[in-house]
Structures are given as C-alpha cells and as structure tokens.
Amino acid sequence: QWKVGDKCSAIWSEDGCIYPATIASIDFKRETCVVVYTGYGNREEQNLSDLLSPICE
C-alpha cells in the first residue's frame, strides 16, 4: 500500500512518458493521490492504481 512520501513512478499526462515522482498526498476515498515529479516540481493527480514502482536511476 502506498503512503505519503513514497517514491514511485508515474505517467505524466502531457506526454505519456514515465517519470520518477514522490507521493505528496493521498485521498483513500477516491483512490487518488497527488504526485510531485522529481526534478521538475510539477504536481499532478493520479489514480493510486496507476502508480508504478520507482525507477532505478
């Protein structure tokens, strides 16, 4: 189960590419979260089910 502060990978809606991110907040009722893309600072809402394991850098 994901928690705030977890590192993950998420698909950015603008280009469909996968980027490393950190979970900033979680809404368990809606099963969504807000991620912050590492190195970019962009925030975006994602479905918890769409999150991927962190990418090894």
Score class of each variant (00 low, 15 high):
30 R>Q: 09
3 K>C: 11
30 R>C: 02
27 D>M: 03
4 V>I: 07
49 S>M: 06
55 I>P: 10
25 S>M: 07
49 S>C: 10
40 Y>C: 13
23 I>D: 04
57 E>D: 12
41 G>N: 10
21 A>H: 08
50 D>T: 02
19 Y>A: 01
24 A>Q: 11
47 N>M: 05
15 D>N: 12
15 D>T: 10
2 W>S: 11
6 D>H: 00
5 G>I: 05
17 C>H: 15
32 T>R: 03
22 T>P: 01
2 W>N: 13
24 A>I: 15
8 C>H: 00
50 D>F: 05
31 E>K: 14
4 V>T: 09
39 G>I: 11
27 D>G: 01
34 V>E: 08
16 G>E: 05
28 F>T: 11
35 V>K: 00
54 P>L: 07
40 Y>D: 05
47 N>D: 06
54 P>G: 08
32 T>C: 05
23 I>Y: 03
19 Y>H: 10
15 D>V: 03
28 F>S: 10
30 R>E: 11
15 D>L: 06
31 E>R: 14
28 F>V: 11
9 S>A: 13
35 V>D: 04
7 K>F: 12
21 A>R: 01
48 L>Y: 05
28 F>N: 09
43 R>D: 07
56 C>K: 09
26 I>T: 02
45 E>A: 06
49 S>V: 10
35 V>Q: 05
14 E>A: 13
1 Q>D: 13
47 N>Y: 13
10 A>Y: 06
44 E>T: 03
10 A>T: 03
49 S>R: 13
34 V>W: 10
24 A>N: 06
2 W>G: 11
17 C>T: 05
51 L>Y: 03
13 S>M: 07
48 L>Q: 02
5 G>V: 03
12 W>K: 03
56 C>S: 14
42 N>C: 11
6 D>C: 12
55 I>F: 13
52 L>Y: 10
29 K>E: 14
31 E>D: 09
50 D>M: 06
45 E>F: 05
50 D>Q: 02
35 V>Y: 02
39 G>T: 09
33 C>D: 00
25 S>A: 09
17 C>D: 10
23 I>L: 02
44 E>G: 02
1 Q>G: 13
57 E>K: 02
6 D>K: 00
55 I>C: 12
41 G>M: 09
5 G>Y: 08
3 K>I: 13
47 N>C: 08
2 W>I: 13
33 C>Q: 01
14 E>V: 15
39 G>H: 13
43 R>L: 09
24 A>S: 07
34 V>M: 08
54 P>H: 08
2 W>L: 12
55 I>E: 11
43 R>M: 14
30 R>H: 11
29 K>V: 14
13 S>V: 08
49 S>D: 08
56 C>M: 14
40 Y>I: 13
42 N>I: 15
53 S>V: 10
25 S>W: 08
43 R>Y: 13
47 N>V: 04
18 I>T: 04
19 Y>E: 04
36 V>N: 02
43 R>V: 09
15 D>Q: 08
18 I>G: 04
3 K>E: 15
26 I>V: 01
39 G>K: 08
46 Q>W: 07
30 R>V: 10
29 K>W: 10
24 A>G: 06
24 A>K: 03
42 N>L: 14
13 S>G: 07
27 D>A: 00
41 G>A: 07
42 N>E: 08
33 C>N: 00
4 V>M: 00
1 Q>H: 12
53 S>W: 14
10 A>H: 05
27 D>V: 08
25 S>H: 06
43 R>H: 10
53 S>I: 10
52 L>T: 02
51 L>P: 03
9 S>T: 09
46 Q>F: 06
21 A>M: 03
41 G>V: 06
12 W>A: 04
5 G>S: 03
6 D>E: 01
25 S>L: 10
16 G>A: 05
7 K>N: 10
20 P>L: 11
15 D>A: 02
6 D>S: 00
29 K>L: 13
43 R>S: 14
4 V>L: 00
17 C>I: 07
29 K>S: 12
3 K>L: 13
27 D>Q: 01
1 Q>P: 10
1 Q>R: 14
20 P>C: 15
24 A>V: 15
5 G>L: 02
15 D>G: 07
23 I>S: 04
42 N>S: 12
43 R>F: 13
43 R>C: 13
38 T>Q: 09
46 Q>T: 06
11 I>Y: 09
53 S>P: 15
19 Y>W: 04
7 K>W: 10
2 W>R: 00
28 F>E: 13
55 I>V: 11
13 S>F: 06
57 E>R: 05
17 C>R: 15
14 E>D: 05
20 P>G: 08
28 F>Y: 14
38 T>K: 07
50 D>P: 02
33 C>R: 00
49 S>P: 04
37 Y>M: 01
32 T>N: 03
9 S>H: 13
6 D>A: 00
1 Q>M: 13
1 Q>F: 11
18 I>H: 02
3 K>V: 13
13 S>R: 10
37 Y>L: 04
17 C>G: 11
26 I>L: 03
23 I>C: 00
14 E>S: 08
27 D>Y: 07
22 T>E: 10
49 S>H: 09
39 G>L: 12
49 S>I: 12
33 C>S: 00
25 S>F: 09
20 P>S: 11
12 W>D: 03
27 D>T: 02
52 L>N: 02
11 I>A: 04
41 G>D: 06
26 I>M: 01
7 K>M: 11
5 G>T: 05
42 N>A: 13
55 I>R: 09
14 E>W: 14
12 W>L: 05
41 G>K: 04
11 I>D: 05
34 V>K: 01
46 Q>G: 05
52 L>I: 07
45 E>C: 07
36 V>M: 08
19 Y>Q: 03
11 I>Q: 01
12 W>H: 05
1 Q>C: 15
46 Q>M: 09
35 V>E: 01
27 D>S: 01
43 R>K: 11
11 I>C: 03
36 V>F: 02
36 V>D: 01
25 S>R: 01
19 Y>R: 00
9 S>R: 15
28 F>G: 08
44 E>K: 00
16 G>P: 07
32 T>H: 03
39 G>R: 05
36 V>C: 01
38 T>C: 13
16 G>F: 07
27 D>N: 05
6 D>I: 07
48 L>H: 03
32 T>Q: 05
53 S>D: 14
34 V>L: 06
19 Y>T: 02
43 R>A: 13
14 E>L: 14
7 K>Y: 10
45 E>P: 05
36 V>E: 13
28 F>K: 10
30 R>I: 11
48 L>V: 03
10 A>F: 07
46 Q>L: 09
42 N>M: 14
32 T>K: 05
50 D>R: 01
10 A>D: 06
43 R>W: 13
55 I>K: 03
39 G>A: 09
31 E>W: 06
29 K>T: 13
12 W>T: 08
50 D>I: 09
22 T>F: 09
23 I>Q: 02
33 C>A: 15
49 S>E: 10
10 A>G: 01
47 N>E: 02
45 E>H: 07
31 E>S: 12
51 L>M: 04
49 S>F: 07
49 S>L: 05
37 Y>F: 15
21 A>V: 11
2 W>C: 14
10 A>Q: 05
10 A>K: 03
31 E>P: 00
15 D>H: 01
51 L>K: 02
11 I>M: 07
56 C>H: 14
13 S>E: 07
10 A>S: 02
23 I>H: 04
22 T>M: 07
28 F>I: 11
55 I>Q: 10
27 D>R: 00
20 P>D: 12
48 L>C: 15
36 V>T: 03
6 D>V: 01
10 A>V: 13
42 N>R: 14
8 C>Y: 00
40 Y>T: 15
38 T>F: 10
13 S>K: 11
43 R>T: 12
18 I>C: 15
42 N>V: 15
18 I>N: 01
21 A>C: 15
20 P>I: 11
18 I>D: 04
38 T>R: 03
29 K>H: 12
26 I>K: 00
46 Q>D: 03
49 S>W: 07
43 R>G: 05
10 A>L: 03
55 I>W: 12
22 T>H: 05
57 E>F: 11
46 Q>H: 14
51 L>V: 02
37 Y>I: 06
11 I>F: 04
2 W>V: 11
39 G>D: 10
25 S>I: 10
22 T>C: 08
15 D>I: 04
22 T>K: 03
